[in-house]
């Protein structure tokens, strides 16, 4: 029986996709982002995690019906436990719920049609458009991430892209410009939202706490850059 390492389940979340959703945070991540605000989800072992079967997770989700539109799997990086996701999504789909994935985009989604069949949409992190910067920030490159962005957008399953912006340390304008430019032609298939997230030090590891968020004016600039490339639905957080 397949089990997942799960850090937390939040029964009611308004910030993990459209509508009211149950958010499931999986343990373990293959990136190591400097600004990670829940670094306790990176390692595969932790005192507080639960090993849960699909049945056990579904039981908890069922308690939240009829109040939720669907579920969102996040983490950590939930796609590292994709077999569990497929099994889970099959069950939640039967319950009439939508299945969203929050992902760093490190696995090639097009390689997993089974997973895509049961996934309604993905919220994808675009941490940096520049490969070197991406490695510096996360310890991994961004080639597959960008492939994923195009692929998901082309099949109408890219709900949202997200970028955390940091003053000085990241070339925010380049990332925002290039990713929106790359994806603008797909807006006609399905509207893609861009969530531009100000860096916050809450939960961040001590050695990375000194970074700064861009000013309000810079956030507005980034918004404008995205708008100019056809992204009308931009959320500044």
């Amino acid at each position: 029986m397949i089990k997942a390492r799960i850090n937390k389940i939040i029964d009611s979340s308004v910030v993990d996709g459209p509508g009211n959703r149950t958010a499931i945070f999986f343990q373990g991540c293959n990136f190591n982002c400097k600004y990670c605000h829940n670094p306790e989800t990176i390692n595969h072992c932790s005192n507080i995690i639960q090993n849960l079967s699909v049945g056990e997770v579904v039981e908890q989700i069922k308690k939240n019906i009829p109040f939720i539109k669907g579920i969102t799997t996040s983490g950590g990086e939930c796609t590292l436990q994709k077999d569990f996701l497929i099994a889970l999504f099959k069950e939640t789909k039967k319950l009439g719920l939508t299945n969203f994935i929050d992902s760093n985009g490190s696995i090639r989604f097009s390689d997993y049609p089974d997973l895509m069949e049961y996934t309604n949409a993905v919220m994808l992190d675009i941490k940096s458009i520049c490969n070197e910067e991406h490695i510096e920030l996360t310890s991994k490159g961004n080639k597959i991430v960008l492939e994923n962005a195009k692929y998901l957008a082309s099949i109408g399953k890219l709900f949202e892209i997200r970028t955390v912006v940091i003053e000085g340390y990241l070339n925010n304008r380049e990332t925002v410009f290039k990713i929106t430019n790359m994806l603008k032609e797909y807006q006609k298939i399905r509207e893609i939202r861009y969530k531009i997230i100000k860096y916050r030090c809450l939960g961040v590891r001590r050695e990375f706490k000194d970074m700064k968020a861009p000013s309000e004016e810079e956030m507005k600039n980034l918004n404008h850059i995205a708008n100019e490339n056809g992204f009308t639905n931009v959320l500044l957080v």
Binding site: V14, N20, P66, F67
Partner: peptide, 23 residues
């Protein structure tokens, strides 16, 4: 009462209302 995060996702509040009515 809802906090400001609901402002960006009013659909979530509607889901909760629908659930309340169904209950």
């Amino acid at each position: 009462p809802f906090d400001h995060t609901a402002n960006e996702n009013p659909e979530a509040v509607l889901d909760i209302f629908n659930g309340g009515f169904a209950s």
